[in-house]
Design a protein around this nucleic acid. Structure first.
Length: 887
RNA sequence: GCCGAGGUGGCGGAAUUGGUAGACGCACUGGAUUCAAAAUCCAGCGAUGGUAACAUCAUGGGGGUUCGAUUCCCCCCCUCGGCACCA
């Protein structure tokens, strides 16, 4: 029966192959890739619909900012996504893999200034080029769903949701601190502040308070924190980072009453997580902008100067945290709420108005920062916490910050941390001077940007009606397309055709808001819009319920906090508005490691920095292989090395993959990138190894060619057990199928999957025989190797499959399954150690008992040399692994 | 400064749950093929000693737990990512 079937199949295959061309002997990636891509496009292979019976799988890679060209980080990111998408597709899932453009942002304005073109033109030109680049990589993307956030049909719904949030009280206005360039009279992004100075003017930057709109992400702080436990598909480290960022802490609000005799105008409120140390407070410190500070400075020129000095510099937390701690005594006092002692009020530059109450109680003995400050200004240090099991060495040489037991604290002495906090909080509450409170580190999200190339905030300012929302039927508030910024503020503010409008309430002339939204708003919900990009009546529709949540999200680790937290927040807001039915947008998250490259720059006299691409830099080495000079090819003048950092537009250290794709083909680029390292690992760029990837594909092609030339084979299971050698190879083949499946599915280690296939191919290449059993195995192995590699190098596999199984298409094939019967082994190898050192190997039956294994180990000649004459203390047998003889 | 990762041959990396350190690949060296080169194929390739068999050392540094540590614990050094207006 089987014989007849096989004969018939042979007949079919002969008739199919009769008219087809013989297989090309050499691997020509350009031809193959063009033809494969045309086939995918012609058959709409990656167009996705909601109608399938199959389970859905939504695989999303973070969309790129259209900076001009792809860089290697993009290739890495999108290849990972494509490997997983194609793998799931073969597993029988209905896969959605979309792509779009995070198209608003600062670089477009900078490019516009430099080249005198509008940000719109620059952006859309970049999108066109980068789309072409992405297509040349052969990604299985459903391009029908492409979107760009700078398109009014997209940002319409940013504005619409903003208004809903305003109605719900989730948006409010208050002041926020920005970097102000006093020369250009403009707000600077943190990135535009270099060493505390404006990047274009070199002028020292000042902090300035301006009105801004905020989204109440803190209202969701508890859910955002608690729901992290419902995300087992997220890396532990990302969940930890988010939890720390939200920073929920339990503490006590404490009021230090004003010492009116000293002139203190008001009581001082602070928050502390260490109320147990309250009896050790020796002073209080307030921010430079604190009302008490301003009051004290009114008739004190020195204090006034100090406050002005504190206003200089950038708003970056890293800068503030590392700057030299400076302070000044106000001469004012407050009253310690429990001891009644008078405590001096200091202004300190390390206390920030925007955080908590803008004031802290200082306990130098038990806080490092307070300790350093107290030392510097000779303020008293009073220790009140000692280790639970001993005494504190006094005087202190550094702050003792551990939780311990209170002492020297009057009636609050002898208490452990929690008891001390509880008792002190109760005492404060009894006096009306304190309450326990939960505090978050997380701050509300300021979304106002004084910039042109972003989504307009849909508000109108009317002299008589105040702030009036733009009515829904007037959305979207469209951004003019043709403005060119000049570096001095927002051009929207100089464009009457944009800002002149009438008040929707009273009909009087009014002024449109000219601030635009943070681009993180755009990227907070794009994943939902991909499910229904053509929907012009609503933000999302029922298709979102089919596809969401995203099953696999892939993107750089640099987004671990901000983007991923904002999009979690927005999805919860959308859920609460009835737009989505999900609690969390991304079920599984793969955080890709950064692709790093060296940074080269020159700093002009003005302080302005110009970055040069590594490709433009000539590096000379001396005879010891050490760097002797680094200069620009263009002018042979030296450039500075800025270390290594992530590939980015701003540092101009990206590597364009185009040359790689043109020279070797997309498959080589993809294979090389996946083989270089596991995807989560940081990768320092080097093209060493590209040749190896190309060589491997050439070998693969040749091996299939050699096999096919001798005639293709219909696999006959009866031939599987022809010889022990073939059995071993078949064991390896099916072991490889199992390993590659696990590596792609659970481990996401594509490098080891590729290595396993290489090992298998190396062994197969040693087969010289051409008997039917060998050719049978070769057919089975080649078919499976092509299937296993196809998610990673889809073009070559598409072509090879047509040779191995004429008349069928790779894309219709299921993912291979390891044959359990091929994986059965009678004997296993064990390693024998003596005192933990490898001394020999033994072969034992699969189910040998401990005694038999011990005996075999002791009889091993190599082992005997090390055991003889010594008393055996014990023998450890680790089943399936090793034997360790301890002497 | 704070939060989170990482550090293994000349290089990228492997070792999946505490169990053979260096899989796979690059580079390099030698050989085959070639008029020659490229390409390809074969072999070698952590360090030290040794002709070799082999032995010792070795996973950023120092200490510890264990029969056994790249893996777990403590301290230190370095690199990278994030720090709320780069995206």
């Amino acid at each position: 029966m089987r014989h007849i079937l096989v004969t018939t199949l042979h007949g079919i295959i002969e008739s199919l192959t009769e008219n087809s061309h013989p297989m090309q002997e050499k691997y020509h990636p350009q031809e193959i890739e063009k033809s494969a891509q045309q086939y995918w496009e012609k058959t709409a292979a990656f167009t996705s619909a909601e109608t399938s019976e199959k389970p859905k799988y939504y695989c999303l890679s973070m969309f790129p900012y259209p900076s001009g060209k792809l860089h290697m980080g993009h290739v890495r990111n999108y290849t990972i996504g494509d490997v997983l998408s194609r793998y799931r597709r073969m597993q029988g899932y209905n896969v959605l893999q979309p792509m779009g453009w995070d198209a608003f942002g600062l670089p477009a304005e900078n490019a516009a200034m430099q080249n005198n073109v509008s940000p719109a033109k620059w952006t859309y030109d970049n999108i066109a080029y980068m789309r072409m680049q992405l297509k040349s990589l052969g990604l299985g993307i459903d391009w029908d769903r492409e979107l760009a956030t700078c398109d009014p049909s997209y940002y319409h719904w940013n504005q619409w949701l903003f208004l809903r949030m305003l109605e719900k009280g989730l948006v409010y206005q208050t002041t926020g601190t920005v970097n102000w360039d006093p020369i250009d009279q403009t707000v600077l992004a943190n990135e535009q502040v270099i060493d505390g100075c404006g990047w274009r003017t070199g002028a020292p930057v000042e902090k300035r308070e301006i009105p801004m709109y905020y989204m109440k992400i803190t209202q969701y702080a508890d859910e955002l924190l608690d729901a992290l436990d419902t995300l087992p598909g997220w890396p532990e480290r990302v969940r930890t980072m988010q939890a720390n960022w939200i920073g929920k802490s339990h503490g006590v609000d404490i009021v230090f009453p004003a010492d009116t005799a000293s002139g203190t105008p008001q009581d001082l409120k602070v928050f502390t997580t260490r109320a147990d140390t309250l009896m050790g407070a020796t002073y209080v410190a307030v921010a430079a902008e604190h009302p008490i500070a301003l009051h004290a400075a009114r008739d004190n020129p020195a204090l006034h100067r100090f406050i002005q000095e504190c206003k200089l510099g950038a708003t970056k937390e890293a800068d503030l945290a590392t700057q030299e701690k400076k302070g000044m005594d106000t001469g004012l006092f407050v009253i310690h709420p429990l001891s009644g002692e008078r405590l001096p009020v200091w202004i300190a530059n390390y206390v920030l108005m925007g955080y908590g109450e803008g004031a802290v109680m200082a306990v130098p003995a038990h806080d490092e920062r307070d300790f350093d400050f107290a030392r510097h200004y000779s303020l008293p240090v009073k220790a009140v916490i000692r280790p639970a099991d001993g005494d504190l060495q006094l005087p202190l040489t550094e702050a003792y910050v551990e939780y311990g037991v209170t002492f020297d604290s009057g009636e609050y002495s002898g208490l452990a941390f929690q008891a001390a906090v509880d008792t002190i909080a109760a005492a404060l509450q009894a006096k009306g001077l304190g309450n326990k409170r939960v505090q978050y580190r997380l701050r509300d999200w300021g979304i106002s940007r004084q910039r042109y190339w972003g989504c307009p905030i849909p508000l109108i300012h009317c002299e008589s009606c105040g702030v009036v929302p733009v009515p829904d039927d007037q959305l979207p508030v469209a951004l003019p397309q043709d403005l060119v910024p000049d570096g001095s503020g927002n051009p929207l503010g100089r464009t009457p055709s944009f800002y002149e409008c009438t008040c929707p309430k009273c009909g009087q002339p009014a002024r449109r808001e000219t601030d635009t939204m943070d681009t993180f708003v755009d990227s907070s919900w794009y994943y939902a819009r991909y499910t229904c990009p053509d929907q012009d009546k609503a933000m999302t529709d029922e298709r979102a319920n089919y596809w969401l949540p995203v099953d696999q999200y892939i993107g750089g680790i640099e987004h671990a906090i901000l983007h991923l937290l904002y999009s979690r927040f927005w999805s919860k807001v959308m859920r609460d508005l009835g737009l989505l039915k999900i609690d969390e947008p991304f079920t599984n998250l793969l955080t890709q490691g950064m692709v790093l490259n060296e940074i080269f720059y020159r700093k002009a006299g003005s302080g302005r920095i110009t970055y040069y691409n590594p490709a433009e830099v000539d590096i000379q080495y001396d005879e010891h292989g050490k760097r002797s000079s680094v200069s620009l090819f263009a002018d042979q003048q030296p450039v500075e090395s800025g270390g290594i950092g992530t590939m980015s537009k701003s540092k101009n250290n990206g590597v364009d993959p185009q040359k790689l794709v043109e020279t070797y083909g997309a498959d080589t680029a993809r294979l090389f990138m996946m083989f270089a390292s596991p995807p989560t690992q940081t990768l320092e760029w080097s093209d060493a190894g590209v040749d190896g990837a190309y060589r491997f594909l050439k070998r693969l092609w040749k091996q299939v060619h050699t096999h096919v030339e001798q005639g293709i084979v219909i696999i006959d299971p009866a031939l599987h057990h022809a010889s022990a050698e073939l059995g071993r190879l078949r064991f390896q083949l099916h072991q490889t199928i199992a390993k590659v499946t696990d590596d792609l599915d659970r481990r996401h280690t594509f490098n080891t999957a590729i290595a396993a296939i290489m090992e298998l191919m190396n062994n197969l290449a040693r087969l010289q025989e051409t008997d039917s059993a060998t050719r049978n195995l070769m057919q089975e192995a080649m078919e499976n190797i092509v299937l296993l590699l196809s998610p990673i190098v889809p073009h070559i596999c598409h072509a090879l499959w047509r040779e191995l199984r004429p008349g069928t298409e790779l894309l219709d094939q299921p993912w291979p399954q390891a044959d359990a019967s091929a994986l059965v082994q009678d004997e296993i190898k064990l390693v024998v150690q003596v005192n933990g050192k490898l001394r020999g190997e033994i072969l034992v039956l699969k189910d040998a008992d401990k005694a038999a294994i011990e005996q075999a180990a002791l009889e091993n000649e190599q082992v005997k040399k090390f055991v003889e004459g010594a008393a055996i203390k014990k023998i450890i047998v680790v089943p399936g692994k090793l034997v360790n003889i301890v002497v």
